[in-house]
Write a protein that binds this DNA or RNA. Structure first.
Ligand SMILES: [Mn+2]
Ligand SMILES: [Mn+2]
Ligand SMILES: [Zn+2]
Ligand SMILES: [Zn+2]
Lengths: 139, 139
DNA sequence: GTTACAACTGCGAATTAGTCGCATTAAAGA
DNA sequence: TCTTTAATGCGACTAATTCGCAGTTGTAAC
């Protein structure tokens, strides 16, 4: 009998005090192995491919639970759909190609630092932020 | 007979080739005099206060028309609702107080420049961007 | 291993924000 | 003033997400 190693999200969901149910196991596996920014429909599609019968309502509820516990990040680019990704090792921001919809991740320590400086100057402390840069390939 | 000076948006909507109708006159006045980031419900409420009978569908359609012609900016902070503001003289980004919902505008030439640099390094040219910083008052 | 119970699930109905078709009105240019 | 056609109000519709509920199941305690 082969046992799959628990995904990193599977471990973290338990630490968060949430139950690791069969549907969640599948959804977490999908999230763990995703290298893009899938929306709920797409997550559901991928989860169904592994284990049919999982309800889309469960995907929605699982995303909400994971987000509340800080295990995933919600991305709302400009196409309406809410997209998700497992919280990355290191924070990053996004380029969104307006022509192709392709998303490219980047990180600028300088920008991150400047945000801190500006927030401090305003008497704020940063809870989170989002920098989406809509771009077009230069030619 | 008193004549109200045409609002700056009223002038610009004509230049954009759109018709300056009675409902639009009111909606534009609301937008011009807003110093916050109202959503459609709120715009409708304010427009109704000036001139009852304006349909919310018209507010939606007017926002779409104005956005298509670059006269207003759509802001989608994290509370679901889409908010609007007249395109400002000079671009700015936003702090959103997670406790009060209050929005504070700021601008950092440094951050703006860094974005250009990073985009260029990736072979992109920037179409637009959005930097939302969710904060909490420091105490 | 069995038990107990709250958390979770699937389902379909409800809600919410936004769009759309259509008949009617009214800007705006001629 | 006439003509054209964009814009309006209305209510129906859609898409995304939430919710109520009855049944199931993970988990911790026996
Ligand atoms: Mn990402
Ligand atoms: Mn603003
Ligand atoms: Zn960042
Ligand atoms: Zn900016």
């Amino acid at each position: 009998m082969t046992q799959t190693a628990p995904s990193s999200l599977a471990l973290r969901i338990k630490q968060a005090g949430l139950r690791l149910t069969a549907p969640r196991r599948v959804i977490l596996q999908v999230l763990d192995s995703a290298d893009d920014h899938p929306d709920v429909e797409e997550l559901h599609r991928r989860a169904q491919a592994i284990e049919p019968g999982i309800s889309i309502a469960t995907v929605y509820r699982t995303m909400n639970a994971l987000a509340e516990h800080g295990l995933i990040e919600r991305q709302r680019f400009d196409d309406g759909r809410t997209r998700y990704e497992a919280v990355p090792e290191e924070h990053h921001d996004h380029f969104i190609d307006v022509e192709t919809g392709q998303v490219v991740e980047f990180r600028s320590d300088e920008i991150e630092r400047l945000q801190q400086d500006i927030a401090r100057a305003h008497g704020f402390e940063i809870v989170s932020h989002r920098l989406d840069i809509f771009v077009r390939r230069k030619r």
